[in-house]
């Protein structure tokens, strides 16, 4: 497989996982603004575990990153699903917490060792992250659309009152959703330090979490759509890199450079503009606090 394709896959990977994470969260009715922070936390955790260790530790690193993400998701669920605080404000606070927290941890536990990334492994092993991503998407799909708990999850995002009328707890459904979303977000961050590069840098997620928030819309809140949307944007970034490098060899022009750098964002807007005013069915109760139990 040629380098360009590999590059596109690498660029898409964290976006796909982040979009998948947000899909789960938003299907259950929560906008997770802490996504970027969860990614950073996952990235640091994975790097901390796997730096300087044998490739076998990569699995442990991913597990640890997902555990950290899960706990953060739990935290957000506590605030938004149980205590009915505003989702945006809580997520925003969580983002700051993680941004500062990873900075403090990074500063405290500095190590000069790097991670042996999946990309550096030979043969089939380097494909594990991508296989895992597809597997996660498949599992999420099966869970959300074929199991009772998954349908409850969707009900929590669609009509929490209806869910409560059946005797189930919307708060638990949203908590479950955020835990899974958090775990996925942690893994999305882990790919930054175990697939794309082998070191942690403060603020390395560089806005990918916020990009993912818009990718969910492109994905129409569907797990498969999340993969496609992530791949779409990753391809756009890869193309931009490829073309601007070619441009450099010729006669670079600042206007062309501006157009190239803007292309991925314009492409995303165009993709939806071209699709037309089809009704974009967001989960009906997305962003709304759960109705009071009293």
């Amino acid at each position: 497989m040629d380098e360009f394709t590999l590059q596109i896959l690498r660029l898409s990977l964290p976006l796909m996982l982040a979009a998948l994470s947000e899909t789960v969260a938003e299907r259950s009715g929560t906008v997770n603004l802490g996504l970027e922070g969860m990614m950073l936390s996952g990235a640091w955790t994975a790097c901390f575990i796997a730096a300087g260790e044998s490739p076998g530790m990569l699995i442990v690193a991913w597990a640890a990153a997902s555990a950290v993400g899960l706990i953060l998701g739990l935290l957000l669920a506590l605030w938004t699903a149980w205590w009915r605080s505003d989702q945006i404000v809580s997520g925003w606070a969580l983002h700051f917490l993680c941004l500062g927290g990873t900075g403090l941890l990074f500063e405290r536990f500095k190590s000069s060792e790097t991670v042996t990334t999946f990309s550096e492994l030979s043969g089939a092993w380097s494909w594990v992250p991508y296989g895992a991503t597809v597997l996660f998407a498949g599992l999420i799909f099966l869970w959300m659309f074929r199991t009772r708990s998954g349908l409850r999850l969707q009900a929590a995002g669609h009509s929490p009152q209806g869910l409560r009328a059946t005797g189930a707890s919307p708060a638990w459904a949203r908590t479950m959703g955020l835990m899974v979303a958090g775990a996925l977000a942690g893994i999305a961050g882990a790919t930054l330090t175990t697939v794309l590069t082998g070191q942690f840098v403060e603020g390395m997620s560089a806005g990918r979490g916020f990009l993912a928030l818009s990718l969910v819309l492109l994905a129409r809140w569907h797990p498969a759509g999340a993969l496609v949307a992530g791949l779409f944007l990753g391809t756009a970034f890869g193309l931009e890199l490829h073309l601007s490098t070619a441009d450099q060899l010729g006669d670079p022009s600042p206007l062309r450079e501006l157009l190239l750098r803007s292309a991925p964002y314009l492409a995303t807007i165009l993709a939806l503009a071209v699709a037309g005013p089809k009704r974009l069915r967001a989960p009906a109760a997305l962003g709304q606090p759960l109705p009071s139990t009293e």
Binding site: Q7, L196, Q248
Partner: peptide, 23 residues
């Protein structure tokens, strides 16, 4: 091949840019 990443911390972008240049 000159490139300005627009960031001092996006190490993965730096890596992909270097890969693109290497290609």
């Amino acid at each position: 091949l000159e490139e300005y990443l627009g960031s001092w911390e996006d190490s993965s972008l730096a890596k992909e840019t270097a890969v693109a240049h290497a290609e």
